[in-house]
């Protein structure tokens, strides 16, 4: 069965909930999609033959989606081999191979439920948010608190960003907005101490989930990364199996530096998942492909807009569907 048909089935056959979710993706990714697969369609239309020029152009399309030079090179090499093996001459046939390969990178060998949030079903779950400055950590926490609360969970937030001006107040506003308690200290205090208090408070309130904010930091600042390791250590000391998730928040507009972020933050805090924010712009966030490929860190959530409900659990099928929707519609008569 062709790749597109499989995807199509996945979306048309299932219940309505999935429909609406894929609509959201479609909406949020509409710009991404039209530019990305539009370009591939252009490419396919322009070239009758599959030759060096074709691959060079394809390379540029992928690079312009921030997929990353190394990954693109690998992908192109594999494609060339595949084309040779299957003796493909027509550029239309290549289109399918391209998407198959991209999906390969997304799914890899792993099970498809890697996107699920790992939560402690009976007892407190601690989620630590890390990332560079300005990626949207605090906003993501606010949105996630809302969602978890909607699911009937008792949530507490800890204002661990004691450095940036106004960060504590920002989380406070979110706390009021979604009706969740915020544990905070004064600006400039020790973030590890705030998180420690957060854990104590969450315990005594019988909370299900504790969301820990941290200050944004550039990954090459050794001292600040050490501070983050300390925060994680404090959490693990209080609850041995915690933090249950360490989520690296990545800005979709970030280029190749996202790989460096993933690597360094993983070294410091053992990142378990990615939240890809600001995907509602024209940026494609293609670097998550490379990150998934090289470090097998899955994307767990995506930010598709500014509304509280615009944080969506990541669904690789839906993501790919969004990217290739144009091609799929064209594919079925």
């Amino acid at each position: 069965m062709s790749f597109f048909k499989k995807l199509k089935e996945k979306f048309s056959g299932d219940e309505t909930k999935q429909e609406t979710q894929s609509d959201k993706y479609k909406e949020g990714l509409s710009k991404t999609r039209s530019s990305f697969s539009g370009k591939i369609n252009d490419l396919v239309a322009r070239y009758r033959k599959v030759d060096e020029d074709f691959f060079e152009d394809l390379e540029e399309i992928l690079i312009s989606a921030d997929v990353g030079v190394a990954t693109v090179m690998d992908l192109i090499d594999e494609l060339k081999m595949e084309v040779k093996r299957r003796n493909i001459k027509d550029s239309k046939e290549v289109k399918e191979v391209i998407s198959e390969k991209l999906v390969d990178i997304y799914y890899g060998e792993e099970a498809e439920d890697v996107e699920q949030l790992n939560l402690n079903q009976n007892g407190l779950s601690v989620i630590l948010f890390v990332g560079v400055n300005g990626v949207g950590k605090t906003t993501t926490i606010g949105k996630m608190a809302h969602q978890l609360k909607e699911e009937g969970k008792k949530v507490v937030m800890a204002a661990g960003d004691t450095f940036r001006a106004g960060a504590i107040e920002q989380l406070d506003v979110w706390g009021e907005r979604v009706g969740v308690e915020v544990i905070k200290h004064n600006a400039g205090s020790d973030p590890a101490a705030v998180i420690f208090d957060g854990i104590q408070a969450a315990r005594s309130r019988g909370a299900d989930v504790l969301l820990c904010d941290t200050a944004g930091r550039l990954q090459n600042k050794v001292n600040l990364m050490n501070e983050l390791s300390k925060v994680k250590k404090v959490i693990s000391r209080e609850i041995p199996e915690a933090p249950h998730e360490v989520l690296l928040v990545l800005d979709a507009t970030t280029g190749q530096n996202a790989m460096s972020q993933a690597k360094t933050f993983s070294e410091a805090t053992d990142v378990s998942g990615i939240v890809l924010t600001k995907l509602d712009g024209t940026a494609k966030g293609g670097i998550v492909l490379a990150i998934r490929n090289e470090m097998s860190i899955p994307v767990k959530y995506v930010g598709l807009g500014e509304k509280v409900t615009d944080l969506q659990a990541f669904d690789a099928h839906a993501f790919v569907y969004g990217l290739f929707a144009d091609m799929m519609e064209e594919d079925t008569p």
Partner: peptide, 12 residues
């Protein structure tokens, strides 16, 4: 502009 911006910097 964030110095870490990728290919999208041009569009922005």
């Amino acid at each position: 502009v964030d110095a870490m911006t990728g290919q999208d910097a041009v569009n922005v």
